[in-house]
Design a binder for these strands. Structure first.
Lengths: 229, 229
DNA sequence: AACAACTATTGATATTTATCAATTTTACTT
DNA sequence: AAGTAAAATTGATAAATATCAATAGTTGTT
């Protein structure tokens, strides 16, 4: 009887994910053939560098962000396993318009752009699934832009917490792998402000905080604050 | 001998555009069958409303924006003829995540989502062209997010002017159809600040201003200001 | 277990940008 | 062409957020 290691388990889930996208066995073999490990804090891709690969996150957690000159990043996406990163680079000017960093030890499959493109061209079901991902990415960016460009700090922080809870962790508990600085970068604010606003939200009983773990107690309140602007 | 009206001329250009995307005559007939006119200032689509159509701009100019509660918009795209609007709604939650308004009298072809989707599924070349558009849209949004979230007002305005000149009008002259308020919304700032910053840029000889028409005199200077943060 | 490096927290202050008000200019409608 | 509505402009002020500084706590490494 075969005993599965956690890694086997993970391989299985990755294959399931790719099957659902419409890839056949040989295509799956191709896109999973190159696997790279990243330590926490390591760059998965660097903004401005040549975009050679489309990436599939197999294990771990990443954050994608826009860098500015003074090392202040704007995070627009947290990525969890079984997601594709870098679709925006499939065509266009050949350079990454964003940076991506591992916030936990991670494993990423690298697929050469041309290879990925070939599969899309030869597989309608897959192409259509990829288009769905593009739609979602755009919608997410509109939401982020909405939050970051128009709102005041309290609403921005609420948006970030709602995003993390509903879209990323799918739980009222926001994992302690997310730092105050991550929330700051997601919200487009300074870390010091996040601390103050989290304290306010705690006082209002909207959240509870246990060290770095944040639990959302009153999602409705967060949504009211978010809408208030 | 047949005499072409400006409208015929325009029809011809639209057909050329669609041919280049890989559509055949019958597909072109389908996507151009419903044409709607919009007056200046009219809403082409309303943020939050049900997304029934993909739109092709045949004539005129549009701005796409995120609305916030207090009627302060953030414009993320100016659209010129022969562009497709609303691709982010092709799949996903069925609602427009942005609003779109005519800034000049405009003609727009409406294509039902399901019809558009069908064509994509049956036409690989077209699907691949659409994916290119998604890539570009994402890249544009990353650039906008970069500008709006990280930078100070002078840099933001420079980014907007560079965007308008290089990407939209493809000329050092920014057409007077763009108002101070449009630039404010593109930059995520108040109109009053735009006026002041344009005056500064004029004093620095980076631009000249003739009523509402702005001419870029020193693109390098704008780019330096943009990078400075 | 001790050290170093990073992360979080708090208070005080500075800077930036929005807002408000008043006026002038331009564009649109009939 | 007149009259009205919208846009642009300028100055003064208020509000929001970043920055700086100093300390405390946490995490990872050897």
């Amino acid at each position: 009887m075969k005993i599965f290691s956690p890694d086997d388990e993970n391989n299985k889930k990755l294959v399931d994910f790719l099957k659902k996208l419409g890839l056949n066995s040989s295509e799956i073999k191709i896109v999973t053939s190159t696997e790279i490990e990243f330590k926490k804090g390591e760059n998965v891709c660097k903004q401005g560098s040549f975009a050679s690969y489309i990436m599939i996150l197999k294990e771990g957690w990443l954050k994608s962000y826009i860098e500015n000159i003074h090392f202040k990043n704007t995070v627009f996406k947290i990525t969890k396993p079984f997601s594709i990163i870098g679709l925006s680079c499939l065509y266009g000017d050949n350079h990454y318009h964003f940076g991506c960093q591992a916030i936990m030890p991670s494993k990423v499959c690298l697929v050469e752009r041309a290879v990925f493109d070939n599969i899309i061209r030869g597989n309608n079901k897959f192409a259509s699934e990829i288009i769905k991902m593009y739609s979602n990415s755009l919608q997410n960016l509109y939401d982020r832009l909405n939050s970051i460009s128009n709102k005041q700090s309290l609403s921005k922080v609420c948006d970030s917490l709602i995003y993390l809870s509903e879209k990323i962790f799918e739980s009222e508990i926001i994992s302690p792998i997310i730092t105050r600085r991550d929330i700051a970068e997601l919200s487009g604010l300074a870390t010091e402000n996040i601390v103050r606003i989290l304290a306010e939200l705690k006082t209002a009983n909207a959240i509870s905080v246990d060290k770095k773990e944040i639990t959302i107690l009153d999602m409705d309140m967060l949504k009211r604050f978010s809408c208030f602007g």
